[in-house]
């Protein structure tokens, strides 16, 4: 069986590029705070979503709508409307994180397939079985903190599909609970759909290097020949005690391309590519690579050589927690 490639689209053009490049499934969100990539110039209006879904369906691809932030008290109607509009637009599923929203969707939109977002941080079989039994969740996106044997063990104890990240930005915090962005800017991916909101990010070329600032804090400065620094606190460079280092995590991106055969054996259904904030060029290149890889694995051929290193944030890649060799 071929693993399903689930790829990001921040714009209608990126969605079309993904479909043409061979994505089985595309995930995207509405242009508001209901999704965790609420950045300037990104995402879909209601009409754009319906057109994008029709375009994908006509070519045999599916579309998932991410409504994966936590509703603000008193503004729940925004999230409820997003679920209703995703169903009207013909979405194949919605990706939800908030337990109240899952209950709402199960009660009011029972025919709309529900996936559990990585933002719910469901990392063991007990909690996954709870979501499946209580809200009829059909698929769970696993957090990026599990090794391949741990994923295999979870899959042996659950009846729902699992989807794992294989490429792109790497979040190693307890997803949906991380407050680093809130600490520096007052806004977070969990509530506002923005980790390091662009309005709080400033880059400046200075005599001693390129500085990245978030909410007025300098979080990293690099020399002329180094990759540009990433604008999140978790990948910043700090001095703690007498040591200056990337205290939380190294500025590196996930690339688990070579682990696809092991992930298939571990019972994973779908491989997710991060990057709704990236261009249609990125989407097309990454999808083409991963589609070729999963097709090769399904046909018992060797994996094609990877070509994606330079597309990685921070210009370097890691297999993350999957191999547990990473700090």
């Amino acid at each position: 069986m071929t693993l399903e490639i689930v790829c990001p689209a921040g714009t209608p053009a990126a969605l079309r590029a993904a479909v043409k490049a061979g994505a089985h499934t595309i995930y995207c969100g509405f242009a508001d705070e209901t999704n965790a990539r609420n950045f300037p110039g990104l995402n879909f209006g209601r009409a754009e979503m319906a057109e994008g879904i029709a375009f994908a369906h006509a070519r045999g691809s599916k579309v998932l709508v991410a409504i994966n932030t936590y509703p603000r008290a008193g503004a729940e109607h925004l999230w409820h409307a997003a679920i209703a509009d995703a169903e009207t637009a013909g979405a194949d599923a919605v990706i939800l994180a908030d337990i109240g929203l899952l209950a709402f969707a199960a009660e009011h939109h029972p025919g709309l397939r529900r996936h559990l977002s990585v933002q719910a941080a469901a990392a063991n079989s007990d909690i996954i079985n709870f979501y499946a039994d209580t809200f009829d969740v059909k698929r769970v996106v696993l957090p990026r903190v599990l090794s391949v044997p741990e994923i295999a063990a979870i899959n042996a104890e659950i009846d729902v599909e699992t989807e794992v990240f294989v490429f792109g930005g790497l979040c190693v915090m307890a997803e949906g609970r991380c407050s680093l962005s809130s600490y520096a800017t007052g806004e977070s991916p969990n509530m506002n759909g923005v980790c390091s909101p662009a309005s709080h990010v400033k880059y400046s070329e200075e005599p001693d290097g390129l500085a990245a600032r978030l909410g007025g804090y300098t979080i990293h400065k690099v020399g002329r020949d180094e990759p540009a620094p990433y604008p999140t606190l978790c990948k910043g460079c700090f001095t703690a005690g007498d040591k200056t280092s990337h205290t939380f995590e190294d500025p590196t991106s996930l690339n688990a391309e070579q682990l696809i055969p092991q992930l298939a054996k571990a019972g994973v259904t779908a491989l997710k590519i991060e990057g709704r904030q990236r261009s249609r060029s990125y989407v097309a290149q990454v999808v083409r690579n991963f589609r070729a890889a999963v097709d090769a694995v399904a046909e018992g051929r060797p994996l094609p050589a990877g070509m994606l290193a330079r597309l990685s944030e921070g210009q370097s890649g890691t297999t993350g927690a999957y191999k547990k060799t990473w700090r």
Partner: peptide
């Protein structure tokens, strides 16, 4: 080209209002 890749590789320099630049790029 991908804007983020050009930026991280230092082929592209972005300064000032990042939100405005992102909106334009997207």
């Amino acid at each position: 080209y991908d804007g983020d890749a050009l930026f991280f590789s230092r082929d592209l320099v972005i300064e000032g209002d990042t939100a405005a630049t992102l909106a334009l790029r997207n």
